[in-house]
Design a protein around this nucleic acid. Structure first.
Lengths: 338, 338
DNA sequence: CTGAAAGCGCTTACAG
DNA sequence: CTGAAAGCGCTTACAG
C-alpha cells in the first residue's frame, strides 16, 4: 500500500510501481506476464520495486483486462459428504500448483440448475468441475448446452451418460462391485445382499449393475436392500432385517451402511465374517474403525480430484488432450470382514 | 449471448441490453442495482430485455467498477477434516442467501502465511473467514496486520488469543471438556485419561484445560496421552497402553481416537462402559457407528459456519455489530459409553 | 525494448 | 428520471 495525502492507506497499484520504478505501467505489466520481453536491467529494477512495495496485481482488474479470471468453479451438490472433501483436497493441491483460484458453487438438492449455471458463467470462471454424481441425463444435457454456449471447459467426475460429450474422470465402479461380489460367491456364499441408497446416485447405480451381473452369472438372485444413509434410520431399518431373510454376504455401496449393518448383525448374534461376509465399496475411515475391520473396494477419491483438475488445466490452456475419458484404477483392501 | 457477424457467439453485455431496450447503459445498471431510481415503465422494459437475453452482469467487471467483489475468502488448513466440511456447509448456505461467492484458500501445513494473505488480498475478497484452528499467536498477529492494512473484515473460528482484536465464533470447549470430566468423576472414576493429538490445535488445548481443571478440582492427577489421528498409528500405539497403566475413564478430543481406543480395549478384554467409561468431544458420525455408541460433547459445527458468515456479512455491510465474540452453546449427547 | 492509448464491462457522481 | 463521461486497475496490440 501507499500513503496518500499523508494518512490514507490504499492498495498498491501498477501505477505506484511504474512511478517508483520510473517506467510505464505497460512495462510493469510485461515484467509480471512476459518478463522475457523486458530488458534485464529494467526488469530487475521493476522487480525490486515490486518486492519493496509488496505489489500484487489486482486479480479482478487483471481478470477483466485479460478476459481470464484464473479461477475455476467447482459445482458441488453436498459438500458435507466425506469423499467430496477428499476430492476437493486433490483439486486444491493441483489448482495451487497452476495458480488457479477456486470458487465453490453449491447446488444443494432442489436448486434450479439452469439458474445456477448462469451464475457460474456470470462469475467468469475459466473452467468448471462438477463434483456431482447425482446429475440426471437431462441435467447433464442442460449443463452441456450452457458451457458450450459460454465456451467454458468443463469436466465431470463420477458421472457420465451414453453420448455425453463432456470429458470425465471416473472409476469403474461396476467392475469393482462385480469383483467384490465374485469374491463372496467364490467363497461359497449364495445369499448375498447389496445395500444401496434409496436415492439414486450415478456411482451407486454402477455398483448395482456390477453386483447384479456377478449374481446373474453365478445363477444367483440379486437382492438389493435400499435404506437411508442416516445411521439412526438405517439401524432401525436393519433391526427387522433378519426376521424373514437368510443372508450370508452383504456388500454396501456406502461403508457407513455396512458398519451399521454389522452392528445390528452382531447384536442379533451373527458372527462376521463367519456367518456373514461384509464388504464396503468406498474405503472411508469408517472401515478401519469398525470391528471387525471392513474389507473394501478402494476408489482413489483424492486422485479423481487431481486428475480432473489436471485435465481441466489442459483444456483451459488449450493443450491437446489425448484422453478425455479417464478411468482410474481401483484396488480392493482386504480386512477382517471378508 | 448475442450473434455477432452472423456466427460468433459472445456473452451478452450491458451494452446489448441497453441497445435492445433503447436506453443508456447507466439505466440498465440502475435497474439492476437501484431499481427504485428508475421509472416503472423504463424499468419493466429493461427487465423484459434482460430476461429475454438472459443477461447476467459480468461479475468481474462489476467487481472492478464497484470495488466490491461480493466474494468472500475462506482460509482453510485442511479441507479433508470432517468438521471443516460441516462448517463450510453452514457458510455456503448463508453466503448463498446474501449472494456472496466463496473462494477457497488452502494453507496446508507448511505454507507461507504472509504470502497466502497477500494472495487473498490480491484476489479482492470483501471479507475473510478463517477456518483454521491451528493458527499460532504470531500467525494471528500477522493476519491481523494484513487485514487491517487492506481493511478487509475478517472472522476467526475456533481460535482466539488474549488481546486478539478480530471477531470470532467459538464454542466453550474448555467448559465442555470440564463438564464431561466431571461426569466421569461423579461416577466415581479416578484414573481418567485424556487422549489428545500430538500436534497442538487451539480447540484441543482448550479441551485439555477443561479436563485438567476438573481433575485438579477433584484432587486427581491429569493424565494426557498424545497420539496420532491416524487410525493405524494410534491403534498400534494403544496396543501397549494397558501394560503399565490402570484406567477407568477415557475422554478423547477426537471421536475417532476414542473409537480406536475402544476397539483396542475391547480386544484386551475390557468392558465399556463397565470397566472404562469413554467419551468423545466432537460428536461425529463415528460416535453413532461405534459399538458401544459413544457419548459425546456436541459442538454445533454447522452453526459455527452459519454464525461466522452472518457476522461477516454484518461487517461487510458496515452494520453495527453488538457482539463480535460469539460463544455458541454445546450439548452433551448421552449414549452407551458413558 | 519501451510507451501511449484503447479497451475489458461495469458503476457512479454530475448535469440536465 | 435519464444520459454522457470518467474511472475501476489491469492487458495488449501498435508505434517507434
Amino acid at each position: 500500500m501507499v500513503l496518500i495525502g499523508g494518512d490514507i492507506l490504499a492498495n498498491t497499484t501498477i501505477y505506484d510501481v511504474a512511478g517508483a520504478a520510473k517506467v510505464s505501467l505497460a512495462t510493469v505489466s510485461r515484467v509480471m506476464n512476459n518478463p522475457e520481453k523486458v530488458a534485464p536491467k529494467t526488469r530487475d529494477k521493476v522487480l525490486e520495486v515490486i518486492k519493496k512495495l509488496g505489489y500484487r496485481p489486482n486479480a479482478i482488474a487483471k481478470g477483466l483486462a485479460s478476459r481470464k479470471s484464473t479461477t475455476i468453479g467447482v459445482v458441488i451438490s453436498d459438500i458435507t459428504r466425506a469423499y467430496i472433501a477428499q476430492m476437493l483436497g486433490g483439486i486444491i493441491d493441483i489448482a495451487e500448483k497452476y495458480q488457479y483460484s477456486i470458487k465453490i458453487f453449491a447446488t444443494g438438492l432442489d436448486v434450479d440448475l439452469e439458474d445456477e449455471m448462469r451464475t457460474v458463467v456470470a462469475e467468469q470462471v475459466d473452467g468448471i468441475l462438477f463434483l456431482n454424481e447425482e446429475l440426471s441425463k437431462e441435467e447433464i444435457e442442460l449443463v452441456v448446452n450452457k458451457v458450450k454456449e459460454a465456451e467454458i471447459p468443463t469436466i465431470l467426475t463420477n458421472v457420465n451418460f451414453e453420448g455425453n460429450p463432456l470429458p470425465y474422470v471416473m472409476i469403474d465402479y461396476a467392475k469393482g462391485a462385480y469383483e467384490m461380489t465374485k469374491k463372496m460367491i467364490d467363497k461359497g456364499r449364495k445369499n448375498i445382499y447389496l445395500f444401496s441408497t434409496v436415492r439414486h446416485y450415478f456411482t451407486n447405480d454402477l455398483k448395482e449393475q456390477g453386483y447384479i451381473k456377478a449374481m446373474h452369472e453365478a445363477g444367483l438372485t440379486p437382492q438389493i436392500f435400499r435404506t437411508s444413509g442416516d445411521v439412526q434410520v438405517n439401524t432401525e431399518h436393519f433391526r427387522s432385517f433378519f426376521e424373514n431373510r437368510s443372508i450370508d454376504g452383504a456388500i454396501s455401496v456406502r461403508d457407513s451402511i455396512a458398519v451399521s449393518f454389522m452392528n445390528v448383525a452382531k447384536r442379533a448374534g451373527r458372527k462376521i465374517p463367519e456367518d456373514i461376509l461384509v464388504a464396503g465399496l468406498q474405503n472411508t475411515k469408517y472401515a478401519t474403525l469398525a470391528m471387525p475391520t471392513l474389507t473394501c473396494l478402494d476408489s482413489p477419491v483424492y486422485d479423481i480430484g487431481v486428475c480432473a483438475m489436471r485435465l481441466l488445466t489442459k483444456y483451459m490452456k488449450q493443450e491437446v488432450v489425448e484422453e478425455s475419458h479417464v478411468i482410474l484404477p481401483y484396488t480392493i483392501v482386504e480386512r477382517e470382514s471378508l
